[in-house]
Design a protein around this nucleic acid. Structure first.
Lengths: 190, 190
DNA sequence: AATCTTATTGACCAGTGTTCAATAATGAAA
DNA sequence: TTTCATTATTGAACACTGGTCAATAAGATT
C-alpha cells in the first residue's frame, strides 16, 4: 500500500487517454470499464478520477481529438489540386466515407454512441466538424445550395458509414459502393 | 416470503412485455433494468428469467411484433391512391423517416444496437425489410434505377433517422427537414 | 527540518445482469 | 382425499459497473 507513486511513473492525462482510447476502440464505450483502464495502467481506478471528472468526460476528451482528425482530412482535400469542383466534391464525399470506415470504432464513438452521460458532453465537437464540412461543400457546389440540401448530403454520407460500421465491413470491401454513393449525391446537387 | 403467487396474479409473458416495453421506451435499453421492470410488476427480478432467457431476448421479443410494422407502412403507402408515382415515392421516403423517429427504440434495435448480446438475435430482419423497400422504390421510379442507386436512397434515409435517433429528436420537431430530405432524394433519382 | 500541496490508494456505496437452491401453489394420478 | 410431480416464484449470492472519499505518502516550498 503506497498512496502515491514515485515521480517517474506518475499518472498523466496523456497516459490515461492513450490506454483508454485503445480500450474504447477495442471494446466500445460501455464495456471498457474504468477498472480495466486502471488495470492496464497499473493504477487504481480511483486515481483516474483525479485526472478526469468521470468516464464520460474522459471519453469526451478522446473523441474531441478524433473530430479534429476528421477536420484535417477535409482540409487536406480542399488543399489538393483537382481539375474540377465536381472532382473535389466527389473527393470529399469519398474520403469522408473512407475516414468513417477505416476508423470505425472512432466513428462509432464520435457519432453513434447512445449514452445519456456522454450525450451531454458531446455537442460542439460534431457541430464544429459539420460546419467545416458544410462550408467546404458550399464553396464547391455548382449552384447555391440551400442549407437543407447540404444537411441532406451530410446525413446521406452518415447513413452509408453508419450502416457499414454496424456490420463491421472494411472500406476496401465497399469502396466501389462508396464511389457510387458519392456519385449519387453529386447527381443530387448538380 | 411466498415462493409462488396465487393463480389470479401469476406472472405472464404478456404482463412482463407490457411493462418492459413502457420502460424500454421511456429509459432506453441499458437504463431500463430488470429490477425496475420487476418492481413495477411487483415481483422479484429473478422471476422474469423464468419467462425470458435474458434481457436481450426480452427486448427482442418486445420489439418483434413491431418489427414488421415497417413493412406494413410501406405496403399501406403502396396501397394508397396517389396522383403520381413521384408523390408515392415521396410518401414512402417521408413515412420511412416517420416510422424510424416515432419508433426510435425499435429502430435502434433493428439497425443501430451494438450490444453483442442483442446483435446475435437479429440478422435477417433488416435484410428482409430492405428487400421490401427496394422493390417498392423500383416499381415507382421514373426510370430504371440501378440497384446501387436504390441502395444509396435507403442509406440516405437511414442516415437521417440514425442521426435524429441519436439525439432523441421527435418526428414532430424535424418533419419539415424530413420533407426536404425526401425531396432531396426524389431530385436525385428523377 | 517543518509544512503544505498533490497524487494515489482501496474500502465503500448503490447499482447492474444473471444464476440457482429452496420452496410454495397447482394440477393430476392413486 | 391424499400423494406427488410439475411449475412458478423468491431472494440470496456472484461478479461486475461508475463513482466517492478519508487516509496517506511523495514531492515542493518555506
Amino acid at each position: 500500500m503506497s498512496p502515491r507513486k514515485s515521480a517517474h511513473d506518475e499518472l498523466t492525462k496523456e497516459a490515461i487517454i492513450s490506454v483508454a482510447r485503445d480500450l474504447f476502440v477495442k471494446e466500445g464505450y460501455s464495456s471498457a470499464s474504468m477498472r480495466k483502464i486502471a488495470d492496464t495502467l497499473q493504477c487504481s481506478h480511483g486515481a483516474i478520477y483525479y485526472h478526469f471528472k468521470n468516464k464520460a468526460q474522459l471519453f469526451y476528451e478522446i473523441v474531441e481529438a478524433d473530430f479534429q482528425k476528421l477536420d484535417q482530412v477535409l482540409d487536406s482535400v480542399l488543399g489538393e489540386s483537382a481539375d474540377t469542383n465536381e472532382q473535389k466534391l466527389f473527393s470529399i464525399f469519398y474520403r469522408y466515407i473512407q475516414f468513417g470506415l477505416t476508423h470505425q470504432k472512432h466513428y462509432e464513438l464520435m457519432f453513434l454512441i447512445h449514452d445519456d452521460d456522454v450525450k451531454s458532453y458531446l455537442n460542439e465537437g460534431p457541430n464544429k466538424s459539420y460546419m467545416h464540412f458544410a462550408q467546404a461543400i458550399n464553396s464547391l457546389a455548382p449552384r447555391s445550395l440551400s442549407i437543407k440540401d447540404i444537411w441532406s448530403v451530410f446525413l446521406s454520407l452518415h447513413g452509408f458509414v453508419t450502416h457499414y460500421c454496424r456490420s463491421e465491413t472494411t472500406f476496401e470491401e465497399v469502396k466501389e459502393l462508396a464511389s457510387s454513393h458519392a456519385q449519387f449525391l453529386i447527381k443530387a446537387i448538380f
